[in-house]
Simulated scan of single mutants.
Amino acid sequence: MSCSYALSITRRVAFFPAVFQLLLSSYSEAETVTLRGRTIDLTGFPNATNTGVPPGMTLKESGGFVINSSGAVVEGLDIRGGVVIDASNVTLRNCRITYDGVYVVLIKGGIRGTVIQNCEIDNLGSGGQCIAGQGSFLRNNIRNCADGIAVGGNDTVIEGNYIHDMRGTAASHFDGIQADGNFSHLTIRHNTIINENIQTSAIMVDNYAGPIDNVLIENNLLIGGGYTVYINEVAKGQLVGGPVTNVTFINNQLVGWHWGGLDLRTELGNMPVISGNINKATGAAIPPGKKPTSKPTR
C-alpha cells in the first residue's frame, strides 16, 4: 500500500468548470470519501486499507517490460514504466506499477488467463488507462487515470478493486470501467469505483465497438460521474454496434452522480435484468435515468 494513503489527503480535480474536492481519510478498518459535499462510508467495500500491495512487503525497483513467457509469475516489484503482457496464463501480483503512458498495463488481444492481483497501478494523471485488456483483475488499487480498466476481450472478471482519483487531460472521458463492446462474459463484482468528475461514468457498458453478451454487474459501490452507470444498446451512430444481451445489473449501491444513477438505452430491444440497486445516501431504488443533453462520445 502506498504510504501516501496512511494520511488524510486532499486532491482537487480542475478540468471542468465545477471543481470538486475529494477527501480521503484512511483508517485501519474503514475509509470515507467526501464528494460534492456528501461524506460516503466505504465500510464493507474495497478501499485503500484492503487493496493493493499487502502491508510490510519490500518491493524491488524495476523498469517497464514485456512478459512473453507463458505461465510467468511476476511479483514483488516497484515498476517504473509500462507492462505489456503478450503470453497466456501470466500472473502479475503484489507489484506497484507507475507509468505516464497510454497503458500502464496492456494485455494484448487474444491473450488468455491473465491475473493481475493486489497491485497498485498509477497513471500519474496522464489521461491513459491503468489496465487495458482481458483477464482476472482482483483487489487492485487503481488511480490517477482516465480509464481505470478498459475491457478488451472475452472472459473478464473484475472483483474487489478500488478505482479512484480519476484524472487526465481536458479531452479525457472518465470511466472507472470502460467496456465498449466486442466481447462476452464480463463479471464486475464487489468493487469500489469513484469518478470524481461530472462526466462520464463509474461503469460504461456500450456497443460502440461491437456486440456484447453475458454481463453481470453486482454488489458494487459506484460513486460519481455524469451518470454513474451507462448500459447503452444504441441502434445508430456507433462504430460497429450490435446487440447488448444477457446483462444483469443487481444489488449495487450508487451515489454522487451529476445527471442520474443509471442511463439505460435499449434501442435494439434487449432489456437487462435490473434489481436491488439503491441510492446509498437515501436507500431509494435506482430507476433508469433520462438521456443527458449530449450523448457521451468515445
Rank of each mutant, 00 (worst) to 15 (best):
Thr248Cys: 07
Arg93Asp: 06
Asn251Gly: 02
Trp259Gln: 01
Gly152Thr: 07
Ala281Cys: 09
Ser294Met: 04
Ser201Cys: 07
Asn89Gln: 14
Glu31Val: 06
Leu264His: 07
Ala171Lys: 04
His164Asn: 04
Gln178Met: 13
Tyr227Ile: 03
Val205Ser: 14
Ser294Asp: 06
Ile274His: 03
Ile142Val: 14
Arg189Ala: 10
Pro287Leu: 12
Cys3Asp: 14
Tyr99Cys: 13
Thr10Pro: 14
Gly125Glu: 04
Ile286Thr: 09
Gly242Met: 10
Asn94Leu: 14
Glu159Lys: 15
Leu24Gly: 11
Gly269Glu: 11
Ile85Ser: 07
Arg143Phe: 09
Met166Arg: 05
Met271Gly: 03
Ile188Phe: 06
Gly153Asp: 01
Gln134Phe: 07
Lys291Tyr: 02
Tyr27Thr: 09
Asn246Met: 01
Trp257Asp: 03
Ile79Pro: 07
Pro287Gly: 01
Val115Met: 04
Ile188Tyr: 05
Leu216Trp: 08
Gly289Cys: 06
Asp122Ala: 08
Asp213Val: 12
Ile111Lys: 05
Met271His: 13
Asn141Gln: 12
Tyr103Met: 04
Val33Arg: 04
Thr293Val: 14
Glu29Ser: 13
Lys60Met: 15
Arg93Asn: 10
Arg298Phe: 10
Gly81Phe: 03
Asp100Gln: 11
Ser62Pro: 09
Tyr162Asp: 02
Gly181Glu: 02
Arg38Gly: 02
Gly224Leu: 12
Gly76Phe: 00
Thr51Leu: 07
Asp180Phe: 03
Gly52Ala: 09
Ile223Phe: 12
Phe137Thr: 14
Ser28Cys: 11
Ser8Asp: 06
Val66Tyr: 00
Ser275Lys: 12
Leu106Glu: 00
Gly125Leu: 04
Ser88Trp: 05
Ala48Gln: 06
Pro211Phe: 08
Glu267Ser: 07
Ile85Ala: 07
Gln117Tyr: 07
Ser28Trp: 15
His190Thr: 02
Val53Pro: 00
Thr282Gly: 09
Tyr99Gly: 08
Asp122Ile: 15
Glu196Ala: 12
Ile116Asn: 05
Pro288Leu: 14
Ile131Asn: 10
Ser70Tyr: 03
Thr228Arg: 01
Thr39Pro: 01
Phe65Ala: 08
Val102Phe: 12
Val229Trp: 04
Ile217Pro: 05
Gly37Cys: 11
Tyr5Leu: 06
Ile116Gly: 04
Gly226Ile: 04
